[in-house]
């Protein structure tokens, strides 16, 4: 880490005032589980760090009258797991958050930081850039080892994958985001928050350097069957190779509408219309779920080393659908993955 000045504002307004309008000058520190690593590796070298943990008003989980929820940006992951309202109304979310990272990280990491965390791409983390280039201008990712890289949205120059294992499910639930900036607050659908950068000057989300994520709004999930399925090699504390989140509204035993979002497959959480269409008005069983998995990856385009991820994404979609309707899926160990309707 390079030297920096450190401030702990107590209000959103104050925090905003301390942030520079230019990326690189200042960084927001929440749980620090991502930011400090990036700073230690000199990927980020802010001259000022604004600790927002003492900012008031961002640490609550509130239940809405209709069963919806608002989660403050500073709520730590462990509190989401433990919150009765979340466990009752969004059981798949409680389970997914419980499966993220490790006990220690869940105790430290905030949900706001989770949405804003930077990609784990090993070129990026090793200081070669988010859109790394070889001396002759080719993509280092395309030329190099891209086993963990994107199979969607990889037309270039971005090939990294969106890291959060929680975000796809939040998007499937239809979450919205509140962001505070110099000009007041704005609200947008969570999926709109993520974007594929076209140049080194851009980041992978729609956040200005002097804005703060303040709150996540979850619409009521009454009547929604949701699940998240992660393909992870290790039993626990391991970045998944592909994930899928589904949220279904049912009409009897048939799917009325579906939101299917894949993670770790594209520079942004990847919403699959193809999979949703494949399952529309159908009863979910092994065949229809498989077909939805196949549809989900029909437009995937693998790089030199990540063809296997196409299969894994299809499996994740299929199994997430089956879990959502309460069917059992092959399971190597109970500790391995999240689920729950």
């Amino acid at each position: 880490m390079i030297q920096f000045e450190y401030l702990s504002p107590s209000s959103v307004k104050q925090a905003l005032g301390l942030l520079s309008p230019n990326w690189g000058d200042t960084e927001v520190l929440a749980g620090g589980t991502d930011l400090l690593g990036l700073m230690k590796d000199f990927v980020l070298t802010p001259k000022r760090v604004v600790n927002i943990k003492h900012v008031s008003g961002l640490e609550a989980i509130r239940s809405e009258g209709d069963g919806g929820a608002r989660i403050g940006a500073l709520v730590t992951l462990d509190r989401i797991v433990e919150a009765a309202h979340i466990r009752q109304n969004y059981p798949a979310l409680a389970q997914t958050v419980a499966d993220a990272a490790s006990t220690q990280i869940r105790n430290m990491a905030t949900i706001g930081g989770n949405l804003c965390q930077r990609p784990r791409c090993w070129y990026f983390r090793n200081g070669m850039g988010l859109l790394p280039k070889t001396p002759d201008g080719k993509s280092m990712v395309v030329e190099g080892d891209n086993r963990y890289h994107a199979i969607f949205g990889n037309e270039g120059p971005a090939y990294f994958v969106s890291p959060s294992t929680i975000v796809p499910l939040l998007i499937a639930y239809g979450a919205r985001l509140r962001i505070a900036g110099a000009d007041g607050e704005r609200e947008l659908a969570l999926e709109k928050f993520f974007r594929i950068p076209g140049s080194d000057a851009e980041r992978e989300h729609d956040l200005k350097p002097n804005e703060l994520v303040t709150e996540i709004l979850l619409p009521s999930a009454k009547g929604v069957r949701a699940a998240n399925y992660e393909v992870r090699q290790k039993a626990s504390f391991d970045w998944p190779l592909a994930t899928a989140a589904v949220a279904l509204r049912m009409n009897g035993s048939a799917v009325e509408s579906a939101r299917i979002v894949m993670g770790a497959v594209a520079p942004v959480p990847w919403v699959s219309q193809e999979a949703a269409q494949a399952i529309a008005n159908k009863t979910i069983n092994e065949q229809t779920a498989s077909a939805a998995g196949a549809a989900a990856v029909s437009k995937a385009r693998s790089l030199s080393h990540n063809n296997y991820k196409v299969k894994l994404a299809a499996v994740a979609v299929k199994r997430a659908l089956l879990v959502a309707v309460g069917q059992t899926v092959p399971d190597l160990s109970t500790a391995q993955r999240g689920g729950g309707a």
């Binding site: 090993w122 070129y123 090793n126 070669m128 070889t134 280092m140 030329e143 190099g144 080892d145």
Partner: peptide, 8 residues
């Protein structure tokens, strides 16, 4: 990494 020769 084949191009940079570094451990990833």
């Amino acid at each position: 990494d084949p191009t940079s020769g570094r451990m990833l």
